[in-house]
Amino acid sequence: LKQKGYDLHVLSSKWIEEPGVTCHEINTRSLNSVVSTLSFNRNVVPVLRRLRPDCIISFERTTFQHIYRAGDGCHREWLNLRGYTDGFMKRMSFSLNPLHRVLLRLEKEIFEGTPVIIANSGMVREQIMRYYCVAEEKIRVIYNGVDLRRFNPGNRDVWREELRVKYSIPEGLPVILFVGSDFRRKGLGVLVSSLPYIDREVRLLVVGRGDTAKYKRLAAKRGVDDRVIFAGPRKDIEKYYAASDVFVLPTVYDPFSNATIEAMASGLPVITTMNNGVAEIIDDGYAGYVLKDLFDPPGLGERISEVIDRLPVMSLNSRRKAQEHPIEETVNRFAELIEDRIDSA
Score class of each variant (00 low, 15 high):
146 V>Q: 07
241 Y>N: 02
276 N>P: 01
325 H>K: 07
340 D>N: 12
269 P>A: 05
276 N>K: 00
245 D>L: 01
154 G>V: 05
206 V>E: 06
257 S>N: 12
65 Q>V: 00
293 D>T: 03
111 F>D: 07
187 G>K: 12
206 V>G: 05
187 G>T: 12
94 F>Y: 15
67 I>M: 07
71 G>P: 00
256 F>G: 04
294 L>H: 06
93 S>C: 01
273 T>P: 06
133 C>W: 05
301 G>V: 08
241 Y>H: 13
248 V>R: 10
338 I>C: 09
340 D>M: 12
155 N>E: 12
17 E>K: 14
12 S>R: 04
216 K>E: 15
308 I>M: 08
236 D>H: 05
126 E>A: 15
79 L>Y: 07
336 E>K: 03
182 D>A: 09
228 V>A: 04
203 R>D: 01
331 V>Y: 12
140 R>N: 11
74 C>S: 13
133 C>D: 12
136 E>N: 14
53 P>T: 11
152 N>S: 15
91 R>V: 02
183 F>L: 11
44 V>H: 07
196 P>W: 08
45 V>G: 00
296 D>V: 01
5 G>D: 06
185 R>W: 00
186 K>S: 03
92 M>T: 05
272 T>F: 08
301 G>N: 03
48 L>C: 08
89 M>F: 14
35 V>A: 11
280 E>K: 07
203 R>W: 02
225 D>W: 04
307 V>I: 14
283 D>R: 13
221 K>Q: 11
83 G>A: 06
101 R>D: 02
180 G>F: 06
151 F>N: 06
293 D>W: 02
161 E>Q: 14
246 V>I: 15
205 L>C: 07
211 D>C: 05
294 L>R: 12
66 H>Y: 01
276 N>H: 02
154 G>I: 03
296 D>E: 07
71 G>W: 05
144 N>K: 11
30 S>G: 11
207 V>I: 15
337 L>C: 08
267 G>W: 06
117 I>M: 08
124 V>D: 10
172 G>I: 07
308 I>N: 02
302 E>W: 01
137 E>L: 03
317 N>C: 11
13 S>T: 15
97 N>L: 03
90 K>R: 13
96 L>E: 00
160 R>N: 00
191 L>N: 10
84 Y>T: 10
